[in-house]
Design a protein around this nucleic acid. Sequence first.
DNA 1: GCAATATACTAGGACATCCAAGGGTTTGGA
DNA 2: TCCAAACCCTTGGATGTCCTAGTATATTGC
Lengths: 168, 168
Amino acid sequence: MGTPLPRDPIADAQRNWERHGWGDVAAPMAAITAIMRTQQILLARIETVLKPFGLTFARYELLALLSFARSGALPMNKASALLQVHPTSVTNAVDRLEKAALVARSPHPTDGRTTLIELTAEGRTLAKKATEALNAEVFGKSGFGPDDVDHLIRVLGTFRRDAGDFED
Amino acid sequence: MGTPLPRDPIADAQRNWERHGWGDVAAPMAAITAIMRTQQILLARIETVLKPFGLTFARYELLALLSFARSGALPMNKASALLQVHPTSVTNAVDRLEKAALVARSPHPTDGRTTLIELTAEGRTLAKKATEALNAEVFGKSGFGPDDVDHLIRVLGTFRRDAGDFED
DNA sequence: GCAATATACTAGGACATCCAAGGGTTTGGA
DNA sequence: TCCAAACCCTTGGATGTCCTAGTATATTGC
């Protein structure tokens, strides 16, 4: 995307906010902007690792979710809820994974409205390999210290709960 | 996107990682996944606030950036670098903002390759209103405590610097 | 001075996300 | 029993992001 900037653009933005009399929300603005940018960086790293496997993050997440399901199968709506994405996004991902023979659609045994997504043997194998690559090259080299990781999990967990993600 | 889940799906994923012998990277995985999800929640809130103004976050960011430029104008490549997005994304945003008469393209006085993006009067007015709305409804109600905000800014700042965003 | 290299923007394509709408299936109350 | 409301998935459309190329302009080096 380019060479490093001489100064942190988010810190600059925070200063601009303060200079315009919005000092009371400058810090939260900076924190939120930093989260957006961090997500962008992390996503790029993840996609780079997954590319050799022919996977995107969205498809990987679905494969990983299925690989942890007892039966290796889940209803589409369940996957949508657990991945916290719109149902149409799941439809999209399943379409592509199915074309790659990594998952298969099958009718729900008792509910005619529901479609089950099932992991194929290749899908299970690929999920395992992709997970090992991500663990080694992204999660194992996150750059966050152990204390920071714990803090992030706690702070963002509270945020997500308050946002209505879960009740726990 | 639906009703709250009974349990935190990211905490479940972390347990699954540990159960499969990947305990050493389970926590960073959870932290990174939490960042991805938090970004999604924040982006949705921001887009909701901006929708009445006919803006998206990408377009708003460009307007805000221009509004802080001394002359109210910036070269496209400068905007791309400061917003940390691909040049084609800036082209896309400028196309739409220009169609809405919020910005205008003008040739660079000395470099024929460069195009300047200039804020129109309406663009400046809208940027100000949109900023006030975001400050009031998103940044002012982030849900993060002051200590958490400071911690996020520090930890994510270090991460972004290490990732090569800036040198500072 | 001119050719080779570098830089700036845009066009086209692949993906992902969301929303709105439509068609099929279940469920529940009159 | 039966029809309306609720639920599930898919299609089509709008946006945004990135990548790869292609065109135009600047800069560099011989």
